[in-house]
Nucleic acid binder design. Structure first.
Lengths: 136, 136
DNA sequence: CTACGACTTCAAGTCAAGTTGAGGTCAAGG
DNA sequence: CCTTGACCTCAACTTGACTTGAAGTCGTAG
């Protein structure tokens, strides 16, 4: 089985070695062993890192990600919680879309102050539906 | 014109007074004056706070938010940048949707280890399209 | 008048998520 | 043999976003 040095993992994933060590320290990834001092990773870690990056951009903390994609590739979160998180993500996605439309409108609108533009205000009310609450 | 004490703003917005002072300090919101020592805010600040919350959950830093919805309600970001940010938001929204589907699948899938499930792997590849890059 | 509660400032503390640096190990090449 | 480069550890530092605490200032109610 092909093993990767930390440098290789860094090169392929774009995640710096210092961060990979940190992630290992907090139990977010695992090396499969050492060769001398050097950590060896197998290719699977790359998928895991991609998933971690994804979770991060979705606003999950590293702790949450560890829970959701717990070491051993198994998920230790009860199913209803997962579905709730999925709902949160959907709501969040809708907010992002609304914000996106808002930004596009700002980019296009000639109105001197945005707050004076009725379309802006309408888009904003729309973006603010679902009061933007962080859910741990 | 109705003015609000910091405590009222906190009560109506859910943002604690300490945070409101902090936001004022970094120029993210402005009070319209003082009565004695006390900051007075007008109602507009509530909309601004909602917008800030929205921006935060979209992953913008407070600095970015300040640029985008710059003091005076005007935006000081060049239009192409705004459109680029909007594109980022759309991409991000798509990733969130993919992640949501992934979570829902995990909640439903009986496969002992997710990595063994072909549907999981497919959803994951899908979620990972657009390599999840943070754009300042 | 004075006590209370809601505010004020300012400095320091906290937390997550890393990064940086000093000093050490090891294998391979010249 | 000895240098070089890639790795190692561990502690300390950084940044962003707040929070906390001590000490002080108001204005209104009793």
């Amino acid at each position: 089985m092909k093993m990767l040095d930390i440098g290789e993992v860094a090169a392929r994933s774009g995640v710096p070695p210092s961060t990979l060590r940190y992630y290992e320290e907090i139990g977010l990834i695992a090396s499969v062993g050492r060769r001398g001092l050097r950590r060896q990773f197998d290719l699977e870690v790359l998928e895991r890192l991609a998933l971690i990056a994804l979770g991060r951009t979705a606003g999950f903390s590293l702790q949450e990600i560890r829970e959701i994609f717990g070491r051993d590739g198994r998920c230790h979160v009860p199913r209803p919680d997962l579905r709730r998180k999925a709902d949160d993500l959907d709501a969040q996605a809708r907010r992002l879309n609304a914000l996106s439309r808002l930004l596009r409108h700002v980019a296009a609108c000639p109105e001197p102050s945005q707050l004076d533009c009725p379309k802006f205000r309408k888009l904003m009310r729309l973006a603010l539906r679902k009061p933007a609450k962080r859910v741990a």
